[in-house]
Design a binder for these strands. Structure first.
Length: 205
DNA sequence: GCTGTACGACGGCAAGACCC
DNA sequence: GGGTCTTGCCGTCGTACAGC
């Protein structure tokens, strides 16, 4: 811990960026004995430094539809510089997360970069509320396609259950042509949005 | 200017291991 | 045998940046 604290104080003085330290067992024999999990070795552990936090304002909360129909609420934020990049949106994961944070449109929130990469809303500064903030209410229909929304018991996520959802089919099409599937070159989200291959008529079955 | 990729966190699910 | 924990995998998210 002393070594960790030492690096916390001197990390900003280095000419290169670092986000933490890694502690590893030195012995090769012990390393081989411990082996690996699916993602990481068992003989090493990373200690991350505390993330830089800033405050900004939630200007809107918008639902996004994934290819599996999962609905993800995304907070549209007043653009703010955090950890070297400008952040204007952050995922809220699901309704439970919105309720846990008690985040409302118009709220001032504390924002950080999880792992110095992903924008993450940490908390709401309730003392700065003016009374004009609007609580977010999960709609009963998907704004994009008008289809019904269903929450499977025991799960946190809501899903669009409209089999002809245009937004869902668009995401499926993008996944189909992407590198993870058929790897069709010159494909992209923009192309998927603009192409006549998937017009809204497709969404109507 | 556009596109693809990498990055890490979180949530959900399934299967297997482990403990009582 | 049943409950809990661990592991592995998948899906989703936003931004920067290299390459074209």
């Amino acid at each position: 811990m002393k070594y960790y604290q030492e690096w916390v104080s001197k990390k900003d003085k280095e000419q290169y960026g670092i986000d933490g330290i890694v502690i590893k067992i030195d012995s090769r024999a012990v390393q081989e004995a411990l082996g690996y999990t699916g993602k990481s070795p068992r003989f090493g552990v990373a200690y991350k430094f505390p993330a830089e936090q800033v405050t900004t304002v939630v200007e809107d909360i918008v639902l996004q539809v994934g290819r599996t129909g999962v609905l993800t609420p995304v907070a549209h934020l007043r653009p703010v510089l955090v950890a070297g990049s400008v952040v204007s949106r952050a995922t809220l994961h699901n309704e439970d997360e919105i309720n846990r944070l008690d985040v409302r449109v118009g709220d001032t929130v504390v924002l950080q970069k999880a792992g110095d990469v992903i924008p993450d809303i940490v908390s709401v500064i309730k003392d700065l509320r003016t009374g004009k903030e609007k609580p977010y209410v999960f709609p009963k229909n998907v704004p994009d396609c008008g289809g019904p929304i269903e929450r499977i018991p025991g799960q946190a996520a809501y899903r669009c259950v409209n089999k002809n959802s245009f937004a869902q089919k668009r995401r499926k099409f993008y996944h189909f042509v992407s590198k993870h599937a058929f790897d069709i070159e010159e494909s992209s989200i923009t192309l998927c949005q603009n192409t006549r291959l998937i017009s809204k008529k497709w969404g109507q079955g």
